[in-house]
Design a protein around this nucleic acid. Sequence first.
DNA 1: TTTGGATTATTTACAGTGTTAAGTATATTT
DNA 2: AAATATACTTAACACTGTAAATAATCCAAA
Lengths: 210, 210
Amino acid sequence: MGIAERKEKQKLEIRKRILEASMKLFVEEGFSNVSIRRIADIIEYSPTTIYLYFKDKDEIFYNLHEMGFLKLQEMNRNLDDIHNPLLRLHKMGENYIQFGLENPEFYDLMFIQPEPMEKLTEMGCEWENGDAALTRLRDTLVECMEKGYIAKTDPTVLSLSIWSTVHGLVSLATRQRLEKLIPEKENVLPMIRQSLNWLINTLDISGKGK
Amino acid sequence: MGIAERKEKQKLEIRKRILEASMKLFVEEGFSNVSIRRIADIIEYSPTTIYLYFKDKDEIFYNLHEMGFLKLQEMNRNLDDIHNPLLRLHKMGENYIQFGLENPEFYDLMFIQPEPMEKLTEMGCEWENGDAALTRLRDTLVECMEKGYIAKTDPTVLSLSIWSTVHGLVSLATRQRLEKLIPEKENVLPMIRQSLNWLINTLDISGKGK
DNA sequence: TTTGGATTATTTACAGTGTTAAGTATATTT
DNA sequence: AAATATACTTAACACTGTAAATAATCCAAA
């Protein structure tokens, strides 16, 4: 059935174009400036056509949120050749922060905006992307503990602590809370770095106790 | 000038009613369901009247954000009679988390939504509320260091680390990221508590080194 | 090849949003 | 009482997401 197949492809093609247009809009003009009508303008279809390919706007955002995770995964490639798990953990934190600051809109969708999670609830499935990312963090911590780099403790709790710290740093920064508190704008990033360093350093010391 | 004075009072009275209506709406129905028209409905004025008392919607949100800080301050009253600075720090963290989880809408306005910060930039002034809160944290840390409860380090960096951690915990929770990762909903709060405990415990241990 | 049915796209419409400008009523001052 | 200043409303603009009805296109069978 070559024809049904081609139709399938065309359908996917338009879906792709809708997502590309959305992405362009929301990377360049920010989350709140993405509207169905503006997406429609870019792909040169009428606004309601979009609803033939996506159930609603949130479904578009859900897809973009997934693309964000792909991007982050891509960035984390440089972790593969770091054998020391503590160093790897450090780099992981640096990557996470860099990703968040360089892609604030994607970061928003992945970790701040409620829409993708609501979509997930609606679809009745797990948050696979988030789960995979957190598992990776947890595995690294377990490895750190097994090899004696850091003190032994509940790895799930520790994962949450570390994730919270880096998420806190990124989200306070992108939501302009740090700029308002650290007078010289060029000091914000160094401060964030130092905070991460403190965290890693503290973990490092914990492994040397007793 | 009794008459001008009375007018002044009336003006403040209506401002207050607008803020009260806004607060009711956004506490009960959430940030995104607060609209000028619905506020107008409640106070029984036409929508445009509101613009005689506030420059725009963001100015209303800015005021609500300030009220949030008052509420948090109120909650922190219980810190006054804790003399041990490390215990005080712990309670401070617990308060912060409790406040965030019990008042997610206020928390949003204070630490997540960009609007109040944009208003601040527009007005060209400092973020006094945030500054005061962070200073309080910093002072507590300095006291901890001076009395040997925790290891000495840059208090500003450490403040940021701690604030990031608790902000991370609260915001991941309220934005439904934890619910999606921790299967049993009733385990979320305990996990958050344990993360805070880990943080305080780590600081505690750091004070006992050497 | 033409008809009929499915697919795809558009037009129209609804109910909402923040905000501005113009008009009206009320209160105060001259 | 007339003029002015203040307070408020009406009407309007330019948007938003989305549903229903309509029109156009495409493909298969008669």
